[in-house]
Nucleic acid binder design. Structure first.
Lengths: 338, 338
DNA sequence: TTGAAAGCGTTACCAC
DNA sequence: GTGGTAACGCTTTCAA
């Protein structure tokens, strides 16, 4: 491996000068600069990002903490992140979270300015003490689809999202509307689902109904598991069976569709289904859903982080809210047995 | 930031001893070890991965070079990579490639043992000189869905895949079978599509037909663009129009389906379509396709790399071939106008 | 403008 | 066993 010293030797200058050329410092004569450049080319020298990072105290990397990153919604957000990071000299380090333990582990290791210059955290609220540690260490953090004190976050109004979905269903005459989402007490600390459920509750009450715990099911973002929960919901006698289901994610909504098919129920004639996210798959499934700008959330979050990285200060805390809206497709219809 | 020196001071030992405790070297008395551990806890010390990497010459990271990583097939492979890397102390650094320039740039920067301890390269054959440089630098490289001299690769038999798809179509009585895939001369150097086309050519010849260039279209892995190409193909007068299309990726096949719908053609009555990959979306679209084990390819590739990383030598070059098979769904049928 | 040298935070080799 | 001390490869004062 050729080092900066080799180049210095070859060019007959000091290592410092080579470094100055590398970082195009203004204070270096055109002549020596040319000579150094020539040596660099001759030796095919490339500086070690590692050594540079250690010396400068910055690693030129952005860490992304993301639970289950292969989920369609996470990918769509990541796509936005990557788009925003095109052209910047930062590497992207992925911290995938598949268990609550992972989360702590990652944050523990990330509370060092030399692991990542900045952090993008998706969907999980960072453990309080870790967030404080990061701020203390001067590591800028931006939250996407999550909120936390003192750091900027990019979110949507999940409560309103829950209202939108439920209002749509109520407007179609449905009265037995079930909810399928994350357990509010889930180990990861996901909160969007709970907020969507809150909107659901509100609208039901406004419409004069009382939310019925028997029409609520909790489970992880998994199609298969969601299908099982939905099957359970649909197994009830017809007069108690829900005529509509609001799932707080498209993946779960797709599971519901699967369960309906299995149960021999026609959607939307026998059952209306509304999801949340509007991932690409939903277009294919014809799923009516609440659209949230996933790509934009990643793009926006990364932009804020990069801005802070550029300015070398912590980003201004604040909530950046993105707009959402209902996308009507073919899984919802007037309630037949109102 | 608390450093190893602080800990050493606090515990009243040398930095070397702290380091030994950190890397649990056998040669340190239980007593001092306990004392050091206590100091570490007291000061909430965490070693700098950066400094450690510089000193050891290993960065504890695995780089993944992947073109258009948000594509469904890439994601599925990445899912396998992540699964294989669960529990290992390596970070995952993503090098997304969206342009041929990116590719060179990434490899240039990666030809340093301190950027990544090992490299996983997907779908693009690394530029020859770079590959040599990596080997010279002792950086283990594993190729997934690509081949290269002197390095292990995880692949499928793409030629056979092309045969399987085409044979299926020929078996259904189709004679005007179009091919839609990557340009063999594409700037990224993707080659799987060209090999699939080779299998397609072979089977056509075996069946006594001559591959017709007018039934071949090239374009990137993009649904929209593939739809345009397919529309063009389908715009021909009925007697010249293909009765079947083999697309060398599912994304493109989905584009074909879109175009068929636009053209008012019924699939599979008026047009049969076969894809390649068998991504999740294809289940929904009911697409008949050649299944390749995407997840497994990532898992296998990462396993080989990690094994090499563990053994601290370059991995044995060799071709690891994964099995493929046809998945018949509802986009292919007997040719009506044989 | 440039060179020398002191860090950056570890690890690893050498004495003791 | 343990402490001291060179590396590791770069950046950045400090003098000159």
């Amino acid at each position: 491996m050729v080092t900066i010293a080799d180049v210095a030797g070859h060019a007959g200058v000091g290592a410092g000068t080579v470094s100055r050329v590398l970082n195009d410092s203004p204070k270096v004569s055109a002549a020596t600069k040319a000579r150094v450049l020539a040596s660099i080319a001759a030796l095919d020298y490339r500086p070690s990002p590692l050594a540079r990072a250690l010396s400068r105290g910055r690693s030129q990397t952005v860490g992304v903490v993301v639970p289950f990153f292969t989920q369609a919604s996470a990918i769509e957000r990541l796509r936005g992140v990557v788009a925003a990071m095109g052209g910047v000299p930062h590497d992207l380090v992925l911290f995938n979270v598949e268990s609550p333990g992972h989360l702590d582990e990652h944050f523990l290791s990330l509370t060092r300015r030399d692991r990542a210059d900045g952090l993008l955290v998706m969907s999980v609220p960072p453990p309080h003490d870790h967030l404080a540690g990061l701020t203390r260490a001067g590591v800028p953090v931006v939250l996407i689809d999550a909120s936390g004190a003192g750091v900027p976050s990019v979110v949507v109004d999940d409560v309103e999202g829950g209202r939108i979905a439920t209002r749509h269903l109520v407007g179609l005459g449905h009265r037995r509307i079930a909810f399928l989402g994350d357990d509010p007490a889930n180990a990861f600390g996901f909160t969007s689902s709970a907020r969507r459920q809150q909107g659901y509750d509100e609208v039901l009450r406004e419409a004069g109904m009382t939310p019925d715990p028997r029409l609520v099911r909790y489970g992880p973002h998994d199609r298969r598991l969601a299908a099982e929960l939905a099957a359970d919901l649909l197994a009830q006698p017809r007069r108690r069976r829900p005529t509509a289901i609001f799932a707080s994610s498209d993946m779960q909504a797709l599971g519901v569709l699967e369960a309906a098919r299995q149960a021999g129920l026609d959607v939307p004639r026998d059952l209306s289904v509304v999801g949340f996210d509007d991932v690409e798959l939903s277009t294919y499934a014809g799923l009516t859903t609440v659209h949230q700008p996933l790509f934009d959330s990643g793009y926006r979050g990364a932009s804020i982080l990069l801005e802070a990285l550029r300015g070398a200060g912590l980003p201004a805390p604040g909530v950046h809210e993105l707009a959402i809206h209902l996308v009507e497709r073919s899984t919802t219809a007037e309630c037949a047995h109102g």
